[in-house]
Amino acid sequence: MGLLTIDAENLYYRDLNAKIKEAVRKQNIKKIIIKNARGQRFIGTGLQEKDVEIIVESGVPGNDLAMFMDGPTIKVLNNAQDGIGNTMNNGKVFVHGDAGDVIAYGMRNGKIFIKGSAGYRIGIHMKEYKEMIPSIVIGGKTGDFLGEYMAGGIILVLGLTKDENPIVGRYCATGMHGGVIYLRTDKVPTYLGKEVKVFELNEGDKAKVKELVEEFCSEFKEYNSNDILNGKFIKLIPVSKRPYGRLYSPGNHFPLPEENYFSNKKVDIEKYYY
């Protein structure tokens, strides 16, 4: 009861998503298993039910998985492609494999866990407001431009895969002006964005990381949370809310109101005009 299995072989993405929406909204289905996913896009898009679980049991789902999603949980038991969690508002995504580029673009809340590595431009312009704090945990490594323009949220990269690549690529955190990035490494990445500085983790950070790592390990059972937490972590945060404040100027330099001495007060004209 409440379970639906769909064989997605030869199923066009619009039909697959229509089936999923019908099952969740009209037939009160709470768990959907998809077999033989063959690159269908937008799985999970537009769904707001919090107690729904979609499992992609075989095959690889297509781009924009969980885009605009607002509640359900999706588990992919294989690799996934680009655009996961694009502008996602709530819910969880677990990928038992690698993921592609541009993950979590504009993400607003919810959690994404990738067991393996991810590609370029992860976490661009992630946002945050009060208790809406999106987070994304990547077990392996990432490519260039991680956290570009980040405005909020948490990115945690663990670097657990056994390859020679650096944990993150170049231009990490360029344009970052909010949020925090934790990296499990003792080598500060090269070509960091100039808006960030590297810090040690404080107690609050350690608690956040512990919570995320534990959730990561409870899904990806081949990893042990104690081993991971015993490693060295560093934290990247932006040191200015206004990284580009100094770059722009008014067209005609005249002082801003606070600097202007003459709003309602007595004036010393000679001094002003030297």
Partner: peptide
């Protein structure tokens, strides 16, 4: 806008999920 007060609100130049026309179709249908 779901962002901190007093921070600059910057919109990046491209949509970072549109680097090519087929990506635009992907966004429209999403």
């Amino acid at each position: 806008r779901a962002m901190p007060e007093g921070a600059d609100a910057i919109s990046p130049a491209p949509h970072h999920d549109i680097y090519s026309i087929e990506d635009l179709r992907q966004l429209i249908y999403s």
